[in-house]
Design a protein around this nucleic acid. Structure first.
Lengths: 196, 196
DNA sequence: CCACTTACATACGTGGCGTATGTCGAGGAG
DNA sequence: CTCCTCGACATACGCCACGTATGTAAGTGG
């Protein structure tokens, strides 16, 4: 065994992140007891403080992981679309739909911003904003999208998406509400499209 | 003195709400110690639990108060505009700008949703959404706004606004960022306008 | 082979929340 | 006027969670 040491460490970190992610995603950040979910991972709070400094540090790590996954998913979706505009719209819709998943919603859109401030502000873990910005930039180059500041557009869309997701998730009829939201969202985006 | 009793009670409630509002708005909900800010109001946690049940109950009361103030402000703004469309746009811009005030931002857009879930969901304290919806409904009747589900539009705009405000507030150059955001926001809204 | 660091676990103090209990003043019944 | 009740609020207690200080065993460089 060449370097089993570092592997063990990485594994410990991964186990802590996984346990924290699970706890944060289900009972929420504030109600998640560090003693409890570290024990579930077969460890103690000592390990957590050693690797992440404090509870917020673990949350950061969890968010970073989730953000990376979301960014990857968005990328594959936009890449597989027939046109760039289509890809962009599908990306936005996918963003709403991802925000519907309880874990993503809770961690990325509720507890994350509340505990750490505007998550998309730090250089790390703003992959989703960056992905949206990239798409918008391309569309502007293609002359398909109206003249609007790229980052602003990305953030407005991001905000609309996440709130829509919250709305849907809390709705009594998520299915129907989701359809209404996506439909309205398409209309909103269509307003930004340059008409032929 | 006809009913000094009820006045005293109302005053106690008001003092608790004011103290809580101040603490929540500055240090945040989680960091606000009930012992501390009730003492600042010349009371104890006993009074708080008696009137509001628990810490969340006080937060609800605080949110309700702020929401009422915001709704009133939005109403006067939209009422004083030259046209309905102008009034609507100004309302939205005002919404962004209100969300810039630290107290409103912290309580209404960060801690509120995190602690209580989607605030705009409960019947109480959705005054702002209702005000936006009302404006949108009128614009649709006037044939000035594109065919979009009213509530959906209100929520998308609400989401975009609050995220924009977060972005601005955390920016290193809030003044400039604010201009970018408002400009982009106007473009977004313009996309919903029926062209003559 | 030994000193030293690293990766954790254990032990302890503090503080905040919620609840159970106590007290004091205001009104109504007689 | 007196007593009794009830509501408004304070006090007291226990619990739990976080953070830190300390301990320990395993690995690593010289």
């Amino acid at each position: 065994m060449r370097k089993p040491r570092e592997e063990m460490i990485a594994e410990t970190r991964a186990k802590l992140i996984a346990a924290g992610r699970c706890a944060f995603g289900t009972v929420g950040y504030a109600e998640a007891s560090m003693d409890d979910f570290t024990a579930e991972a077969g460890l103690t709070r000592g390990a957590l403080y050693h690797h992440f400094g404090d509870k917020k540090g673990l949350l950061q790590a969890v968010i970073q992981q989730i953000d990376a996954e979301m960014t990857a998913r968005l990328h594959t979706i936009s890449a597989g679309a027939p046109s760039r505009w289509e890809g962009f719209v599908e990306e936005c819709v996918a963003y709403i739909e991802m925000a519907l998943e309880p874990e993503i919603q809770r961690i990325m859109f509720r507890d994350g911003p509340a505990v750490l401030g505007d998550v998309s502000q730090w250089p790390t873990s703003n992959g989703c904003i960056a992905a949206l910005s990239h798409s918008i930039e391309q569309l502007k180059d293609d002359g398909v999208m109206a003249d609007i500041d790229t980052e602003t557009a990305a953030r407005l869309i991001n905000g609309a998406s996440s709130h829509a997701a919250l709305w849907i998730a809390k709705s009594e009829t998520p299915e129907e509400t989701s359809k209404r939201a996506v439909r309205g969202f398409r209309t909103l985006l269509d307003g930004l499209r340059v008409k032929a």
